[in-house]
Design a protein around this nucleic acid. Structure first.
Lengths: 161, 161
DNA sequence: TCCATTTAGTTGCAAACGCAACAATTGAAT
DNA sequence: ATTCAATTGTTGCGTTTGCAACTAAATGGA
């Protein structure tokens, strides 16, 4: 940490999220998942969702998610069913196996990583951090793009050498 | 923002960094770069570095970086030369073209994105945010892995000036 | 009703990714 | 000096990614 020269907030946050995701990836690997899959799993624990909703709520790009869901379907963790009310939508739900897996690991995901991060923070400080971060998200929102969909690069890639 | 259910610090940070990187990607696209390349460029502005150091300091995985450097070399932005002192290392430096490009865009990268993020923050609050974030990074460091190299996976360390 | 538009989701494709294996070099131990 | 271990950087390989194009279904307007 001490030898990092770039101390800009965006870069420091990049380091934090990068490392947390790395930790989650390592942890989730034996389950055959990575962080995106983990996020999907726990999101579905709160209730069935359409593909679009899951994408929005987890910050996974739609086409990426579609393929991720295919993999998770193959693993027997989730099920797809077409929405009777709207034939365009596909509703994603956990299978018994997926639910069991999610419930089993829920505490780790929802507590452990935040606990590591916030060690030594008083409750007020923790609350303060959350407030500040939400303000940053609001700033981003005002500055242009939708904070969620922009996550996936709602549009760009290309150009190389 | 308001309809996001997961308000855990790691996830909120994921949203922030994701969006900032998206913005930088959009901005850097006309330059033929994306955020990783931009980080490399500005890092080298502070002085020549070995591939390993660049990887460490920017949080780009080594093999990814190696290929990125090949692309940037092809664009005429950077140069590779073998370290005379240690035949294993390869020293990366900016070409005149790369330096010009970096200098030209330095203000945008180092100021604008942080400015967007921190809009409405008082100087004390901004300082506070940085302190809190550094504490988080220290927590991660203590929890096991090296915050920089852990970004990718495997790693190594080395102090710098 | 008919047709244009919008929305949901999937898939084709090329680029990028990360892990692991590798060669080259250095360091350390004996 | 010899050998074994560790480090640096690159590459092989299979996976994943994101954009764009596409199908199918719903919606709105005339």
């Amino acid at each position: 940490m001490r030898d990092i020269e770039d101390r800009s907030i965006p870069f420091l946050m990049h380091l934090i999220t990068g490392q947390v995701e790395e930790l989650v990836n390592k942890w989730a690997r034996p389950l055959g998942l990575r962080i995106e899959g983990v996020r999907v799993l726990f999101r579905l624990l709160a209730g069935d969702r359409t593909v679009n909703e899951v994408a929005r709520l987890t910050g996974v790009e739609l086409s990426t998610l579609s393929r991720l869901l295919t993999r998770m379907e193959g693993m027997g963790l989730i099920a797809r069913r077409r929405d009777a009310a709207d034939g365009r939508s596909v509703i994603i739900s956990l299978t018994a196996k997926g639910r069991k897996l999610a419930l089993q690991h829920q505490p780790v995901y929802f507590k452990d990583y935040e606990t590591i991060l916030m060690k030594g923070f008083s409750p007020e400080e923790a609350r303060h951090v959350r407030d500040l971060i939400v303000r940053m998200l609001d700033n981003l929102e005002q500055s242009g793009a939708d904070p969620i969909s922009a996550l996936n690069g709602a549009g760009n890639r290309r150009a190389s050498a």
